[in-house]
């Protein structure tokens, strides 16, 4: 929809990222243009002019720019993950992208950074990258940067640690995760609807690392010994806060999350 702003400027360099009063960052825009802006926002600063490489992969791991699109995750990273081999951990990239309610037509524009910063419980880029043990690189206004684990970056529904003027620059996935086995499960009230519960997981050397999303207000990482379903039950028993919105009752979400989590653990045995 039309947004009531007075200016849109396209950032070309980091210096352009200094926000004037009333300005706000624009990534893909697929969410920003879907609701009226809050009062007080008068301008947009378009990040797509920065020309960031969508993603790069090397011995140090995977770096995904905030402006990488969901479709580039699905098709690009998903293709890498489709084969067994050094990138098989990315096998959950496609199902995570598909778990989003958005159309494939929107996935061409929606960005990873937008999805992470939006921090919706059903944000499946969180499901994906949290399972891969990712951290985020955040640019501070006026220079400088900080790195934080993704699971702590997202603090609640629609809430992150991003401060005013900070920019999410990229997501970093450690090399060790790329070759690990990963698993994905989703349930929604309708087959392709907004996720009610998503469980992703990664098999590390000694442990299985699961991440709950969609059914909880913020990502919940769980670490248990492979195949230890009793330990998983204990870990799930300790989760007390289940998300409540029009996409599923909290008690049902708790129950189906448990089912999905055991399936993931089983797959990662």
């Amino acid at each position: 929809m039309d947004l009531d702003v007075d200016s849109v400027r396209t950032a070309r360099t980091r210096a352009d990222l200094a926000l004037a009063p009333g300005e706000r960052f624009l990534a893909g825009g697929t969410f920003l243009y879907s609701e009226p802006l809050p009062p007080g926002v008068t301008g947009l600063v378009d990040l797509l002019g920065l020309g960031w490489e969508p993603w790069t992969i090397d011995g140090g791991g995977l770096r995904v720019s905030a402006t990488c699109t969901v479709e580039e995750v699905r098709a690009g990273l998903g293709a890498l993950g489709a084969r067994s081999g050094p990138y098989r951990g990315l096998g959950i990239a496609q199902p995570c992208a598909d778990a989003l309610l958005l159309s494939f037509k929107v996935a061409h524009t929606a960005t990873v950074g937008g999805n992470l910063s939006l921090a919706l419980p059903a944000g499946a880029m969180v499901s994906l990258f949290a399972a891969l043990g990712a951290s985020v690189l955040v640019w501070a206004p006026g220079g400088g940067a900080r790195v934080e684990s993704l699971t702590s970056f997202v603090t609640g529904p629609g809430e992150t640690t991003l401060a005013d003027g900070e920019v999410l620059r990229e997501v970093r996935v450690p090399a060790s995760a790329l070759g690990a086995r990963t698993a994905f499960r989703k349930i929604a009230l309708t087959p392709l609807g907004r996720s009610s519960a998503v469980v992703t997981g990664l098999r590390a050397e000694e442990t299985a690392r699961l991440v709950l999303t969609a059914s909880v207000p913020r990502p919940v990482p769980l670490e248990v010994a492979p195949g230890d379903h009793a330990a998983l039950d204990r870990a799930l028993d300790a989760v007390t806060e289940w998300f409540d919105d029009p996409h599923g009752a909290p008690d049902w979400r708790a129950a189906v999350t448990r089912g999905l989590a055991h399936e993931v653990l089983e797959e990662l045995a």
Binding site: V8, L26, Y33, S34, L48, K105, T109
Partner: peptide, 27 residues
């Protein structure tokens, strides 16, 4: 819907199908 959900506003932008209600026109 004007929010990217229903697809009625789909057009082809440089050949790609997009929901034009959530595409910033300046782009």
């Amino acid at each position: 819907c004007d929010a990217g959900d229903c697809g009625a506003c789909t057009v082809l932008l440089d050949g790609d199908p997009v929901h034009s209600c959530i595409v910033p026109a300046h782009r």
